[in-house]
Amino acid sequence: MKISCPICGDRDIREFTCMGHASMLNRPDPHAGAKVWNEYLHNRENPAGVIDELWWHGQGCGAWLVVTRNTVTHEILGARLARDVKKEMRDAG
């Protein structure tokens, strides 16, 4: 598998670490309560199909990416800087 890093281009999967579902970007309010935090920390859609995940380019540029990937075929459909995704989320409120 190769991930196309927006900064470095196509790089081997060995350079990256998967850090879990991209919903991690959507951090709840500290006082949102146990239910909300349980949803955030533990519960997952866990789809058999297309998923957005956080990957860290630790052995490359060090950027955090949101990688879109198919969990059934392992096809990588795209990668964006997590910074940009987070900014869009903020702008959208």
């Binding site: 579902h21 349980n38 949803e39 533990h42 519960n43 997952r44 859609e45 866990n46 789809p47 058999a48």
Partner: peptide, 18 residues
Amino acid sequence: GRSSQTAAMAGMRLPIES
């Protein structure tokens, strides 16, 4: 292995990743 899909049929989200 497929727990998330079967539980989703009952409207549940599980603390599981495959």
